[in-house]
C-alpha cells in the first residue's frame, strides 16, 4: 500500500517539476517572461475586436468579454496540446538517459497549460471590472467546464506526445487542426450564426460545446443545455479512451523509435 502511495507522491513531484521547467524553457531569454502568456491573448483580442466590431459589425452583447473568454478557453486547449506535442521529442536525449513513466511529459503539459490559464483568467477578471460587468453566480460553473477541458487536453496530450516522437509530421498536421479549430469554434461569432448543416457536424466537436457552455454560464447567467453537456462529456470520453489506447500501444518502445 505505502509503496503505491509513495510512487504517486514521487510522480507528483516529477509532474510539477516538469511543468515548471516547461515554463522556464518556454520563456527563456525573454524579457517579459510569463507576462507573454497575458500579452499574447490580449494582442489577439485587440486584432479580433477591431476586425469584428468595426468591419463586420457582429452584434454580440458584451463582445469584448465574449471574445476574451473564447480566446482564453481556446488558448488553454491550444497551449496544452501543443506543449504536449513536443514534450517527449524535445526530451529525446533525456529519455534515453534516465527512466521515468512515459506519461509524465504529456500530463505535465496539461499542468503547464493550467498555470497559463490561471494567469489569463486574471486578465478576464480585470476586464470585467473595467467594463463594469458583473457576472451571475453561474460563472462558478466555469470550474467543472475547465476540468472537463483539462481532461480533454490530457486525452490528446498522451497520444500526441508519443505520436510526435515517432512521426515528425504530426506536429504540422496538428498545427493545421488547431488553425482550423480556431475558426470552427464559436470564439468570435455565435454558434447560431452558422447554417444548420454546418452546426449538425460541428456539434460533435468537444471544443465547440466547451466554449459555448463557458459563454452561457459567464455571460448569460444560464446553465448549459443538457444537450451541450451530453455531447461534450461523451466526445471527451471517446477521445480520452482512444488516446489512452494509442498511448499504451506506442509507449513501451518509444525510446527505440526516436
Amino acid at each position: 500500500m505505502t509503496s503505491i502511495r509513495e510512487e504517486m507522491w514521487k510522480t507528483k513531484g516529477i509532474l510539477f517539476n516538469f511543468a515548471i521547467s516547461d515554463l522556464k524553457i518556454r520563456y527563456r531569454n525573454s524579457v517579459l517572461g510569463i507576462l507573454w502568456s497575458i500579452i499574447e491573448p490580449l494582442l489577439l483580442l485587440g486584432v479580433l475586436f477591431v476586425v469584428f466590431s468595426t468591419m463586420f459589425k457582429f452584434d454580440i452583447e458584451n463582445f469584448p468579454i465574449y471574445l476574451l473568454l473564447g480566446i482564453i478557453t481556446w488558448n488553454f486547449f491550444k497551449n496544452g496540446t501543443s506543449i504536449a506535442l513536443g514534450s517527449l521529442s524535445n526530451r529525446a536525449a533525456f529519455i534515453s538517459q534516465i527512466y521515468f513513466p512515459r506519461a509524465i511529459p504529456g500530463l505535465s503539459a496539461g499542468v503547464t497549460a493550467s498555470i497559463m490559464l490561471l494567469t489569463e483568467l486574471v486578465i478576464l477578471a480585470i476586464f470585467m471590472i473595467v467594463l463594469n460587468f458583473s457576472p451571475s453566480i453561474t460563472i462558478l460553473y466555469l470550474i467543472p467546464i475547465f476540468l472537463l477541458e483539462f481532461l480533454l487536453i490530457l486525452g490528446l496530450a498522451l497520444p500526441l506526445s508519443v505520436l510526435n516522437a515517432k512521426y515528425k509530421d504530426v506536429e504540422f498536421i496538428w498545427g493545421v487542426v488547431l488553425q482550423a479549430g480556431f475558426f470552427l469554434t464559436p470564439i468570435f461569432y455565435q454558434f447560431d450564426m452558422l447554417p444548420e448543416v454546418v452546426r449538425n457536424v460541428l456539434q460533435f466537436s468537444p471544443m465547440v460545446q466547451i466554449v459555448t457552455m463557458a459563454h452561457h454560464v459567464t455571460l448569460y447567467g444560464e446553465l448549459p443545455s443538457i444537450n451541450s453537456i451530453l455531447y461534450a462529456v461523451f466526445s471527451v470520453f471517446i477521445i480520452v479512451g482512444i488516446g489512452y489506447l494509442i498511448f499504451r500501444k506506442l509507449q513501451a518502445r518509444i525510446v527505440e523509435e526516436m
Partner: peptide, 12 residues
C-alpha cells in the same frame, strides 16, 4: 550515468 549525463536539460 550514461553518455555523460543524467538527463540534463541544456537550457536549464
Amino acid at each position: 550515468v550514461l553518455a555523460l549525463g543524467l538527463g540534463f536539460h541544456p537550457e536549464l
